[in-house]
Simulated assay, not measured.
Amino acid sequence: MSHPLRLDFARLLLNSHALLLGEPLADASLSLPEATRWLYEDAPFCLLAHSAELDPRFIYANMAAQRCFAYDWNAFFGMPSRLSAQAPEQTERQQMLDQVARDGFITGYRGLRIDGKGQRFWIEDGRLWNLLDDAGTVVGQAVAFSDWRPAPTA
């Protein structure tokens, strides 16, 4: 199992975000260890990442995301990311992921998700981007969002 404070993974998140979106994900004055800890423990936004497999699995979820989705690190890590959306929303989610794969990133994303307790909620104004290794190979995708709200029950 991976550790949430891995410097190499934080570097991947930070560098990919800066390259594709043209802005830093964390304060540029922070050292890599400080930025790694801040992203995981103190960032005021949810930050998640999944692998580039055919059925992607979560490989990162900061504390804000763990609270939002009601899963701890051990439950999140390795879980298929498709489980964060109910079946009707999975098609829309896949179309969004395909667009990110093609274009490198999207901003202003809105989507319906489900937490670990079965409660539905809306992600608002999310930004998604490819995670690129040093060779420029896509090794996953990440999402960050600050706004979410409960979805009305049917």
Rank of each mutant, 00 (worst) to 15 (best):
S2Q: 12
H3D: 14
P4M: 09
L5I: 04
L5P: 13
R6T: 10
D8I: 03
D8R: 15
D8E: 14
R11F: 04
L12W: 01
L12Y: 05
L12A: 10
L14N: 02
N15S: 15
S16L: 03
H17V: 02
H17W: 05
H17F: 07
H17G: 01
A18D: 14
E23G: 10
P24V: 01
P24T: 03
L25E: 03
L25R: 00
A26W: 00
A26Q: 10
S29P: 03
S29A: 13
L30N: 03
L32I: 12
A35R: 02
T36F: 12
T36Q: 12
T36W: 02
Y40W: 08
E41S: 09
E41C: 15
D42I: 08
L48P: 00
H50N: 11
H50W: 10
S51M: 00
E53L: 08
E53D: 15
L54Q: 12
L54G: 06
F58Y: 15
F58W: 12
I59G: 01
N62F: 02
N62D: 09
A64Q: 13
A65D: 01
R67T: 00
R67I: 00
R67H: 02
C68E: 00
C68T: 05
A70T: 05
A70Q: 08
N74K: 12
N74W: 03
N74I: 00
F76I: 02
P80F: 02
R82T: 07
S84R: 04
A87C: 06
Q94Y: 15
Q94I: 07
M96F: 03
L97Y: 15
D98C: 11
Q99P: 03
Q99W: 02
Q99K: 11
A101H: 11
A101N: 15
D103Q: 12
G104S: 12
I106T: 15
G108P: 05
R110N: 08
L112E: 10
L112A: 13
I114P: 00
I114Q: 06
K117F: 03
G118S: 06
Q119H: 08
R120L: 12
R120K: 05
R120S: 05
W122A: 01
W122F: 14
W122K: 02
E124V: 05
D125E: 14
W129A: 07
W129Q: 04
N130Y: 00
L131K: 02
A135S: 10
A135I: 09
T137I: 09
A142I: 10
A144Q: 09
A144G: 04
F145W: 08
W148A: 00
R149W: 11
A151D: 10
A154K: 06
